[in-house]
Design a protein around this nucleic acid. Structure first.
Length: 379
RNA sequence: GUGGCUAUAGCGUAGUUGGUUAACGCGCCAGAUUGUGGUUCUGGAGAUCGAGGGUUCGAGUCCCUCUAGCCACC
């Protein structure tokens, strides 16, 4: 793995990361495809057409259905889903926090109930890494606990210390698995995750601590889970400087186009978020002049594309009125076109961000873009 | 033609022995959703209770007439 910073513009970084599955140009937005597929009947061929660099899949979801052992048997996730560019797998740590109703967190790991059939599942660092190794993703994420943003210090501190111990176990397990003969991807990379809710001192201490492990990349987790934007930006301001400057920084689960513009300006280079896909399925479309809700009746007879000049597969051919009709009729094609448009928008936004940093005009670009996006001239 | 049943928001329904601003689901209109359960949540608009008359302090509710629909019989 080689990570090279090509250009700095303020704190904004323009870099490229070489992996066994190809080069990633950063800043990058990873397209979220939880179960080895972007929801909305989007194929990997579509992803190639809309400029997707990295696909993100989920350890927990693939483990409960259809099973990581099967995927290993089928030659790994890349081969299975026919995608030869980079894949990042989330560790399942977030699912433990977000969708497991009944859960028990102990030193060894977490016991919780499957959302599919309710059966009891145990997952700890070793289990998560084993699953991710079976999937053979390009980048695996450490198994962490994601405490709620509003959690008390007294809860967060021991939780973060445990996350550090879990990281050490992840590192050991991955080294062991990468050395094995039958491992799908022997060069699988591990990113560590910084936690600490909205307590800057805990974040900083933890950042320093995990930086010592000299991992190929670092993530900031536990943000955009209920705190304000100001708090999130503040935590980024405080924390990013304590992560290694020559390593990629990944802000997990973020966010809106504005969030991304701000985070890039604070040194972040990897992002992922369900917004473009979930909102695409639910008729919320992103444009350079603000968001629009295609369900609104004012688009009933609107013959224009979602955004004039947009080169996505939806805008090149179909009208707002038609896509609205499809969404109203709950026709799959409506979701598909909505998702393709939004992902194209995000991927294209990242391209513009990279160009702006390359040309040393990121600040002006960001300010202008924020103004455009806040506008309500989409209609 | 005769008898019976029904009529409440765009659709399907609830509405106690008659008692304030007639309720619910779907749909419609809008808003949320940040390491995704094709969701889920939160608001809003919309009804002279089929029409007319009567009883009553008070009628969606009781009575009469009419209209429409459904069912049965001739």
């Amino acid at each position: 793995m080689k990570y090279r910073v090509l250009k700095r513009d303020g704190l904004a970084k323009r870099a490229e990361m070489e992996t066994v599955h190809g080069v990633i140009q950063t800043p990058v937005f990873m397209n979220v495809g939880t179960v080895g597929a972007i929801k909305g009947a989007v194929s990997t061929e579509d992803l190639e057409n809309i400029g997707t660099q990295v696909e993100l899949s989920n350890t927990y979801h693939l483990h409960v259905r259809t099973g990581d052992k099967l995927i290993k048997e089928m030659g790994g996730l890349h081969k299975f889903m026919s995608w030869n560019r980079p894949i990042l797998t989330d560790s399942g740590g977030f699912q433990v926090f977000s969708l497991a109703g009944l859960r028990k967190i102990k030193e060894e790991g977490v016991t919780f109930n499957s959302h599919i059939d309710g059966r009891k599942i145990f997952m700890g660092p070793e289990e998560s890494i084993q699953i991710q190794s079976n999937l053979g993703s390009t980048i695996a994420m450490a198994f962490d606990e994601c405490p709620p943003a509003l959690a008390e210090r007294e809860y967060v501190l021991p939780s973060v210390e445990r996350t550090t111990r879990w990281l050490e176990r992840c590192i050991r397990k991955m080294a062991e698995l990468n050395a094995k003969e039958d491992t799908v991807n022997k060069e699988q990379l591990l990113f560590g995750i910084n936690q600490g809710a909205i307590y800057a001192d805990i974040r900083i201490e933890h950042a320093k601590r995990i930086a010592e492990f000299d991992l190929p990349g670092y993530a900031i987790g536990g943000l955009a889970v209920g705190e304000s934007h100001e708090q999130m930006y503040y935590i980024l301001d405080e924390t990013v400087p304590f992560l290694p400057a020559d390593k990629p920084v990944y802000l997990m689960g973020v966010g809106t186009p504005a969030n991304i513009l701000e985070a890039v300006d604070r040194g972040v280079d990897f992002f992922d978020c369900v917004y473009p896909t979930r909102n695409g399925r639910h008729a919320h479309m992103y444009t350079n002049h603000g968001k629009l809700n295609l369900m609104n009746s004012k688009y009933e007879k609107d013959d224009r594309p979602i955004e004039e000049g947009c080169q996505c597969p939806a805008c090149r051919r179909y009208s707002r009125a038609y896509i609205r009709h499809l969404l109203k009729a709950k026709e799959m094609l409506g979701m598909r076109l909505g998702v393709l448009h939004n992902l194209y928008f995000y991927n294209h936004l990242m391209e513009e961000i990279r160009a702006a940093i390359d040309e040393g005009r990121y600040k002006e670009f960001k300010n202008q873009k924020l103004k455009d996006l806040a506008g309500d001239t989409a209609e």
